[in-house]
């Protein structure tokens, strides 16, 4: 029961981060500014949701941990590559 509750809390927190971090995408700020918020939503929010899923089905933990690690790794590298490639652009959103 407590695990179920904890899992729901994790997923809700992740969804809140998703919503909060995705919202600036429709604004008119520079891509780099949006990238900071996407790192909150897509990396941290998704990790929170994955931990929620992990608490729900602990028997599949090896694959879920692998996905958790590769999620953090790939999203961070993508953020770095996008930041590196989009710089030097005029920054009018």
């Amino acid at each position: 029961m407590i695990l179920q509750w904890l899992s729901n809390a994790c997923i809700s927190f992740g969804l809140f981060l998703w919503l909060w971090g995705t919202w600036p995408l429709v604004g008119r700020r520079s891509p780099l500014y949006k990238l900071h918020f996407l790192s909150v939503s897509d990396t941290l929010g998704s990790m929170a949701i994955m931990i929620g899923v992990l608490l729900r089905i602990p028997r599949e933990w090896p694959l879920l941990v692998l996905a958790l690690i590769s999620l953090a790794l790939w999203n961070t590298i993508l953020g770095y590559v996008l930041a590196y490639c989009s710089q030097g652009e005029d920054s009018d959103g």
């Binding site: 780099l32 990238l35 900071h36 918020f37 790192s39 909150v40 990396t43 941290l44 953090a72 961070t76 590298i77 953020g79 770095y80 930041a83 590196y84 710089q87």
Partner: peptide
């Protein structure tokens, strides 16, 4: 880059 406030550009 992992911490949301900072991103390495170059």
């Amino acid at each position: 880059t992992f911490t949301p406030k900072t991103i390495v550009l170059h």
